[in-house]
Amino acid sequence: MAQSGPEKTYKEKLATGSFELQQCTGCKKHVFYPRVVCPHCGCDQLDWVKAKGVGTVYSTTIVRRKPDAGGDYNVALIDLAEGPRMMSRVVDLSPDDVKIGMAVKSRIAGSGEESLIEFIPA
């Protein structure tokens, strides 16, 4: 067994500033979220590869919150250039201005164990 499972390994890499996806050695498809077995072909040999960090907004919503509860915020599904989809948020613009089809690029928010991928317009 490896030192940690794929979820912890991903987070450890992200904490060092590296956004990585898995790539299946069998079918060559990219995989996100990180898993033990490739969901496309069943192979358990998955390599870690640097993410390109670019993608497209597949769908988007605004979660409505009162200003004193932090205000409205965006939640989006991003189709990564490598193929997999992930939930994230698009920031640096009003949630109203996040549109389906928008090109976006990733950055790491937070630090250490709290590191998180978010997106800004490309």
Partner: peptide, 16 residues
């Protein structure tokens, strides 16, 4: 990312 689920997930499907 604090999705307010389940509504947020269904909202994403509606928007699409």
């Amino acid at each position: 990312y604090k999705p307010f689920n389940p509504p947020t997930s269904y909202a994403l499907a509606s928007a699409r």
